[in-house]
Simulated scan of single mutants.
Amino acid sequence: MTSAHQHPATTVPGPPLPLLSAPWSARVARPEGADLDLVHGWMRSPHIDAFWHQAWPRERWYEEIAGHLAGDAILPLLIDLDGRPLAYVEVYRVARDRLAGHYAELPHDLGVHIAIGDADRTGRGLGRTLLRVLARGLLAADPACVRVVAEPDVTNVPSLRAFGAAGFRPAGEVTFPEKTAALLVHPRTEEDMPR
């Protein structure tokens, strides 16, 4: 047996930049300047802090984003709509995440954490559209990936509704120290749902 078969996650590249088309665009978040100011400010917003619990000092966010960029597990992104920043997104390889082992993941499975920055842009259907566009963009960017997953808090009803409307399907619950999460899966095809 080859080492690739023993440790498939080590042979899988880091998360890709999703392939999005106008009016959507995605770019890697930088750990300095305007990107850092934006993410740091958004994370202090009550509607995000209620579920992310990361209203950290600016320096801690610098370390977080820089750390993600130095590794191959999480890709921090800023998603723009019509050229205006809408959301901070972390795309991660499930096999390199704490979610690994909580379901029958495949080596190329991708996961997403999403925070829509401005509270006044929530509750308008933008989240569900973004989630659909993002899942399709990730599947297009990595042909070997057949599922995009998410694990929002089971008490985050607006988020659960948005994921459902975007084509993510329930696949059970996962218990983490700080939350019980709904495991949601956006499969490439029906056969790609976890069994």
Rank of each mutant, 00 (worst) to 15 (best):
A34I: 02
P13K: 01
I48T: 01
A50P: 15
A50R: 15
P16G: 11
S45A: 15
P57R: 09
G71L: 08
V12T: 09
L20Q: 08
R60E: 09
W52R: 00
A55N: 13
L69T: 02
A26K: 04
A22T: 06
A22G: 14
G33I: 00
A26Y: 05
R30V: 06
S25G: 13
W56F: 08
D37G: 10
S25Q: 09
W42Y: 07
P18K: 07
V12I: 12
F51Q: 12
G14R: 03
A26L: 03
H68G: 04
Q6S: 07
L38M: 10
T11V: 00
H40S: 15
P57A: 09
E63C: 02
G71N: 07
A29N: 14
R30L: 14
G33E: 06
A55Y: 05
D35V: 03
A22L: 10
A66D: 11
L19F: 05
H68V: 00
Q6C: 06
S21E: 15
E64N: 11
G41A: 14
M43A: 10
P57Q: 10
Q6F: 06
W56G: 06
R27H: 15
V12A: 01
L19D: 06
E59Y: 03
S45D: 14
L17E: 09
E32A: 07
P16E: 04
P46D: 11
W24C: 08
L38K: 11
G33Y: 09
A34L: 15
S45T: 01
G67D: 09
P16M: 04
I48F: 11
A55M: 08
P18D: 05
P23M: 06
R58I: 00
W52V: 00
G67N: 14
P8L: 02
A9C: 11
G14H: 06
P16D: 08
Y62R: 05
S25E: 07
V28R: 13
E63V: 01
A26I: 01
